[in-house]
Nucleic acid binder design. Structure first.
Lengths: 197, 197
DNA sequence: CAGGGCACCATACATCCGTATTACATACAC
DNA sequence: GTGTATGTAATACGGATGTATGGTGCCCTG
């Protein structure tokens, strides 16, 4: 079944999180998943295809978890709280999300060079920005937004801030501890959507 | 002379910008700089050392240009304009800065894995945040800042936003064109430092 | 002029990589 | 029962990589 394929992609993610995307090889993935090289080749014709499939799999997982974040934990009072949950879900605030973020960053960095990977990144960011833009527009309708707020621009800035905080948390953990990152995000949202909660 | 060493590091940067940090090899660098493998080894004992030296060289160049940005172009009216010049200097808004940003991102992504590279990144971000924090503090003293602005937090958020915009411009150019990135940065600064210019 | 250090080069070696090929099982079709 | 598809494995091959080694010209000092 396809769970064999997924185990291979999970192994790739694991290796990438621990040692970086450059240390990923067919042999390493095969060993980590405890299968032969031939089996890896059976599911992924080429290494580039394997990396692309893993990236698609991870991007899907990220977007599902982030978007689903607003549903969990009962009802939400304000649009701001809704947005806050989504973006905080994307930051490396615990071990599993740290793994995910490290791999996300590795794939994103490679997307600068690889067109197929860039396509996945484009789709991921488009969904995130789209969701945020709708949320900001809704907040504007509800009168929760700051004067003159443009939903699309606010969405682009918020998405960029999330990834910037993620980048700095991962590459300079001493300079930007988790608390500061969350505080920066909260201050940003407070500026865009003033109000109590 | 040491210009030989610098030519090697420049070649490494060039290769990284065009094909990514994984395609950097001693042979490729030697060929790009039109020297022998042995010469590369003479200046850099190991490949990791070569990459680290290139990263240190680039980080220095980036910080000098960004900090120096406020001096160029005559006097500056406001603190906001001063900050704006520095951060816009860091975005990939033309070819040379696009090259620089691509390489910066490649090094930053590797800093997640490599401690020596992370140290350089920490130093780079500390200088940037330090400068921004002093600027925000100065703006606060001058009464140009929004109510309740905390210089350190504003600096961390601004630095993160710059790198987030950089990341999205490079990995999803279709989703975040240069104009939108500049607009997002301007809107961010307007929120922190309201006022005419 | 003798000699030593510096900058540079060519080559060799072991290792790892991506991929292709071949073979071996099991299961299901006819 | 024979044949065919599917999943898994073992191995081979050409190429690239990091590094070590030995050698060559050249300048400078004595």
């Amino acid at each position: 079944m396809t769970d064999r394929r997924q185990r291979l992609l999970d192994s790739l993610v694991e290796i990438t999180a621990e040692r970086g995307l450059d240390h990923v090889s067919i042999r390493e993935v095969a060993a980590a998943a405890d299968v032969s090289i031939g089996t890896v080749q059976y599911y992924c014709r080429t290494k580039d295809e394997m990396v692309l499939m893993a990236w698609e799999s991870l991007a899907e997982k990220i977007i599902v978890r982030a978007m689903g974040g607003m549903d969990r934990g009962g009802t939400v009072a304000t649009v701001k709280e809704c947005i806050r949950r989504v973006v905080l879900e994307l930051l490396p605030l615990d071990e599993p999300r740290s793994v995910e973020s490290r791999v996300y960053l590795a794939f994103a960095a490679r997307a600068v060079i690889s067109a197929p990977l860039a396509e996945v990144q484009h789709s991921l960011l488009a969904k995130l920005r789209g969701y945020l833009a709708r949320a900001f527009a809704h907040a504007k309708d509800e009168g929760e937004a700051a004067a003159g707020l443009e939903p699309d621009a606010a969405a682009a800035a918020t998405a960029a801030l999330v990834d910037g905080l993620l980048l700095h948390m991962l590459t300079d953990p001493g300079g930007l501890p988790p608390d500061s990152a969350v505080a920066a995000m909260d201050a940003h949202l407070d500026r865009l959507l003033p109000g109590n909660p």
